[in-house]
Simulated assay, not measured.
Amino acid sequence: MNAYQAIYDQIPIRFDMASQVMLIGIVQGFFLALVIFLRASTKSAIHWFGWMLVVQCLVFLDVYLCYTGLMKYVIHLNDSTEFLVLLIAPTLYFFLYTLLERKHFSFKKFWPHFVLPTLYLLSQVQYLLSPQAIKLNAYLGAYHRDLGFVPVPDDFDHSYHHIKDRFRWLVLSSFVFYLFLTAKLVWKAYKRGKMSTKNIRMDKYSFSRNTVIIFLVLFVCLFLVFLNFDDDGGDHYLGMLETLTIFITSFFILSESRFFEKSWIADKYETLSSTSVAFESVEEMLANSEYFTNPDISLKQVADKLGTNANTVSKLINSETGMNFNDYINQKRIERSKIRLLDPDFSHLTIEAIGQTVGFNSKSAFYAAFKKHVGQSPSAYVKAKNNEKRA
Score class of each variant (00 low, 15 high):
residue 150 V to F: 15
residue 118 T to L: 10
residue 259 F to H: 07
residue 308 T to V: 02
residue 389 K to H: 07
residue 302 V to E: 03
residue 24 I to P: 07
residue 339 I to W: 06
residue 324 N to C: 08
residue 142 A to Y: 03
residue 282 V to Q: 00
residue 117 P to F: 11
residue 254 L to C: 12
residue 35 V to D: 11
residue 197 T to M: 14
residue 32 L to F: 10
residue 254 L to S: 06
residue 226 F to N: 01
residue 338 K to N: 07
residue 91 T to D: 15
residue 251 F to S: 06
residue 281 S to C: 13
residue 152 V to Q: 14
residue 250 S to G: 12
residue 16 D to R: 08
residue 351 I to S: 04
residue 359 G to I: 01
residue 279 F to Y: 00
residue 25 G to N: 02
residue 280 E to N: 14
residue 384 A to S: 15
residue 100 L to V: 00
residue 164 K to A: 14
residue 140 L to V: 09
residue 187 W to Y: 13
residue 43 K to E: 15
residue 162 H to C: 02
residue 180 F to M: 07
residue 232 D to A: 12
residue 129 L to W: 05
residue 119 L to I: 00
residue 15 F to A: 10
residue 126 Q to C: 06
residue 301 Q to P: 03
residue 261 E to I: 01
residue 29 G to C: 06
residue 38 L to G: 06
residue 170 L to C: 03
residue 261 E to V: 09
residue 370 F to Y: 15
residue 164 K to E: 06
residue 365 A to L: 00
residue 341 L to A: 07
residue 72 K to M: 11
residue 121 L to C: 04
residue 130 S to I: 04
residue 83 F to H: 11
residue 300 K to H: 08
residue 387 N to C: 13
residue 315 K to G: 05
residue 138 A to M: 03
residue 253 I to T: 08
residue 364 S to W: 12
residue 77 L to W: 15
residue 276 S to E: 11
residue 306 L to Q: 00
residue 326 N to Q: 10
residue 117 P to E: 10
residue 283 E to T: 02
residue 101 E to H: 02
residue 364 S to M: 15
residue 209 R to L: 12
residue 122 L to G: 03
residue 204 K to E: 09
residue 210 N to H: 10
residue 135 K to G: 01
residue 216 L to C: 09
residue 21 V to F: 10
residue 109 K to H: 14
residue 313 V to M: 00
residue 90 P to G: 04
residue 199 N to W: 11
residue 38 L to N: 13
residue 237 Y to E: 14
residue 209 R to C: 14
residue 349 L to C: 05
residue 146 D to T: 07
residue 7 I to W: 05
residue 253 I to H: 01
residue 120 Y to D: 11
residue 1 M to A: 04
residue 234 G to W: 02
residue 176 V to C: 08
residue 380 A to G: 01
residue 272 L to K: 11
residue 339 I to N: 05
residue 373 H to Q: 08
residue 155 D to I: 04
residue 283 E to P: 04
residue 111 W to C: 09
residue 358 V to H: 00
residue 74 V to E: 05
residue 280 E to A: 14
residue 73 Y to N: 15
residue 325 F to A: 01
residue 81 T to C: 14
residue 298 S to N: 04
residue 261 E to R: 14
residue 97 Y to H: 06
residue 272 L to V: 13
residue 164 K to D: 01
residue 271 T to I: 09
residue 361 N to Y: 11
residue 152 V to D: 02
residue 165 D to C: 00
residue 151 P to T: 11
residue 228 N to E: 06
residue 103 K to D: 07
residue 325 F to M: 01
residue 381 Y to E: 02
residue 80 S to T: 04
residue 221 C to M: 15
residue 123 S to M: 06
residue 164 K to P: 01
residue 171 V to Q: 11
residue 275 T to S: 12
residue 17 M to W: 10
residue 243 T to I: 14
residue 267 D to P: 03
residue 189 A to C: 01
residue 230 D to K: 12
residue 36 I to F: 15
residue 66 C to V: 04
residue 336 R to C: 00
residue 321 T to A: 02
residue 175 F to W: 05
residue 215 F to P: 08
residue 179 L to R: 10
residue 167 F to K: 14
residue 214 I to P: 02
residue 309 N to G: 01
residue 218 L to P: 01
residue 367 Y to N: 12
residue 238 L to S: 12
residue 194 K to H: 13
residue 375 G to I: 00
residue 137 N to V: 13
residue 87 L to Y: 08
residue 341 L to P: 06
residue 253 I to W: 03
residue 28 Q to K: 06
residue 250 S to Q: 05
residue 173 S to V: 04
residue 224 L to V: 05
